[in-house]
Design a protein around this nucleic acid. Structure first.
Length: 607
RNA sequence: GCGGGAGUAGCUCAGUUGGUUAGAGCGUCGCCCUGUCACGGCGAAGGUCGCGGGUUCGAGCCCCGUCUCUCGCGCCA
């Protein structure tokens, strides 16, 4: 695990006469010996020796050991305290007796000899111990989030989150970006995700929507003549959760720039992300110059548009080696359909029957017919495995040479129409990498995925759809839209990916009303739709729109990566559960009849 | 909406092929303990085995249904 604990600097609280504390629990050192001090905090742990009693007192800043002698007037109170009570301790700083120092604690050379203990507040028996690092069920953690957040790891994560956001802001401002606020109550927009709606009291039957992203506002700011926009922007989408996706709401580092090419956006964003990952990445190496990978290549090489480049495996097309070969299954498929390809997944050091068989049965568990393979082992001429026998030495040698493999290695094969199998091939690539333990886990490997297709074929509706953002500028502009097959048109649309996590999507926007009209027409939308759905922005395009583009990296995912947490709830202070409920606040909740009346809403609940 | 996993004490978990009174650690409560930092020792309380039904002489365990949590798919431009 990457280091997550976030260092907390103690504040100076000078006066012993302060009602609660003269110092924090992370502050006192050997230099303070002999001083009379006052601390307030939570009882982290009590060790009662009968004749001598220790209390670990904890606050945001750290832990200090309190020692109470039976002769002390504080002893009676100390015997009563329990975990997570909040107390105030008056006492004297003293060096710990020789041999009892605790080198794991910054305050471990000293302790406080208590003279008085005052209880600020007691705690009931805990549903969730703060002490220790056991895993607890999500629902209890969320219901008692205030206890959960006292625990060291998540407390550190939340502090680190704040520091990362500070750093992002600072780096953006250094590059001449200016932070704006955009409306939270706005209009519904058919941008893809389901909207959260807010009923209007003043306008019966009408609704605001919470923004899925400030997309149109940031573009409007560019058309309003502001040059470089950013915002740590809350975004709302009513879609189901995943481990790396909060239900309901999340934050983006939303960015937009005027008079820029795609490369200008990359040049602006790359140093911000690299800087933040170097600053908070716990010494992991960060890609010095983010490579650009075309969407099409990413799918061919990695089986996904969000490749984890820490995995060195790159797939290759080996169709020709199987065409007309003795391995009839593949040869037959290739002969029957010109779209069929065979892809190879090289598996360095995977050359054993045990490993290859394990991969094969894994593939079957995934609902695949199996996973063909050949492997090369010591003291054996040519390759081993059933396929090798069928296609013969010459072809296996050609495959070995193309994939640059050696004795002791293996190659797995997936065959079919790539559009149908690439996803599985990507999973197999990941599985091979994981099982062979060749994924570098001490790096942040970034890349840009570029040249996304502008349109895709919607098989259900038998029509052409926008494949990503309808506001993206098609490569080749109006001419491409008018002359090319829509499915061949690429867009100035890009993603940034780190360690297999999609951090962000972005695009150079379409700022030309004529091009936009045509682009929507191809997707089957008349100009009226454009006017109705995107009226404000479409109007703005008519009055002098600068070429512009941007991107919006997901803040929560950046923090997840930097805290090395697999679940987004570990880096969000008050997350909702998978069902989009806030178990602490009890949201969502029913509205009163009065509220509903004011909003002109009558419920029509499911049976 | 669909599929996988889980649900036993306040918390983390064990519980054999279906067989006596369902166990352990932590926590709680009581007693003992002057150098601990996962303190230690002795004792006690604490259970609708998620819920409902079924099979059986007998169910924590088997079957059916259902609820909750979680992971994934769909969904998320």
């Amino acid at each position: 695990m990457a280091p997550c604990a976030f260092p907390r600097k103690s504040r100076d609280i000078p006066a012993m006469t302060h009602a609660y504390r003269s110092h924090t629990c992370g502050q006192l050192r050997i230099d303070h010996k002999g001083q009379d001090i006052r601390l307030s905090g939570w009882v982290h742990r009590v060790r009662d020796h009968g004749g001598l009693l220790f209390i670990d007192l904890r606050d945001h800043y750290g832990l200090t050991q309190i020692v109470i002698d039976p002769a002390s007037p504080a002893f009676k109170a100390a015997e009563k305290v329990r975990s997570e009570w909040v107390i105030r301790v008056d006492g004297k700083v003293q060096p710990r007796p020789a041999g009892t120092e605790n080198s794991e604690l910054p305050t471990g050379l000293i302790e406080i000899a208590a003279s008085e203990i005052t209880v600020h507040s007691e705690a009931r028996e805990l549903p969730l111990p703060v002490f220790g690092d056991t895993e607890y069920p999500e629902d209890i953690r969320l219901k008692y989030r205030f206890l959960d957040l006292r625990r060291d790891r998540i407390h550190g994560n939340i502090m680190k989150r704040g520091a990362i956001i500070d750093s992002l802001r600072r780096r953006m401002k250094e590059q001449g970006f200016f932070e704006f606020q955009t409306p939270i109550l706005t209009a519904s927009s058919p941008e893809g995700a389901r909207d959260y709606l807010v009923p209007s009291r003043v306008h019966p039957g009408k609704f605001y929507a919470l923004p899925q992203a400030p997309q149109q506002f940031k573009q409007l700011l560019m058309m309003s003549g502001f040059d470089r926009y950013f915002q740590i922007a809350p975004c709302f989408r009513d879609e189901d959760a995943r481990a790396d996706r909060s239900p309901g709401e999340f934050y983006q580092l939303d960015i937009e720039m005027s008079f820029v090419t795609q490369q200008d956006v990359f040049d602006a964003v790359e140093p911000v992300l690299r800087g933040v990952f170097e600053e908070f990445g716990g010494g992991y190496s960060v890609t010095p110059k983010f490579p650009m990978i075309a969407f099409r290549d990413s799918v061919r090489w990695y089986g996904t548009d969000k490749p984890d480049l820490r995995n060195p495996i790159k797939m290759q097309n080996v169709t020709e080696h199987f065409r007309g070969s003795g391995f009839k299954v593949f040869a037959g498929m290739i002969a029957a359909d010109p779209k069929v390809e065979v892809w190879a997944i090289p598996a360095p050091k995977g050359g054993s029957r045990a490993f290859c068989d394990r991969m094969n049965s894994w593939a079957q568990q995934q609902g695949q017919p199996g996973l063909g393979y050949v492997f090369w082992r010591d003291g054996e001429e040519g390759a081993a495995g059933p396929i090798a026998k069928n296609i013969g030495l010459e072809r296996t040698e050609a495959i070995k040479s193309q994939l640059a493999l050696e004795t002791g290695d293996a190659a797995f094969f997936v065959a079919g129409v790539p559009a149908k199998f690439y996803k599985f091939a990507g999973e197999a690539r990941t599985k091979v990498g994981q099982d062979l333990d060749i994924i570098a886990n001490d790096r942040f490997d970034f890349c840009w995925i570029v040249d996304f297709p502008m349109y895709e074929w919607n098989e259900d509706d038998k029509k052409v759809d926008f494949s990503h953002n309808p506001f993206s500028m098609p490569q080749g502009g109006l001419e491409a839209l008018e002359s090319k097959d829509p499915l061949d048109i690429l867009a100035y649309q890009y993603d940034i990916v780190c360690n297999g996590v999609e951090l962000s999507s972005g695009a150079i926007r379409n700022h030309r009303p004529d091009v936009m009209k045509k682009a929507f027409e191809i997707a089957g939308y008349a100009e009226e739709v454009l006017l109705e759905k995107f009226g404000g922005m479409y109007r703005a395009f008519q009055y002098g729109a600068p070429p512009h583009g941007g991107i919006a990296p997901g803040v929560d995912r950046i923090v997840m990566l930097l805290c090395n947490e697999p679940n987004i709830r570990e880096v969000v202070p008050f997350p909702m559960n998978q069902q989009a409920e806030d178990l602490l606040m009890g949201a969502p909740s029913e509205a009163t009849p009065k509220q509903l009346r004011e909003l002109h809403i009558r419920l029509n609940l499911p049976e």
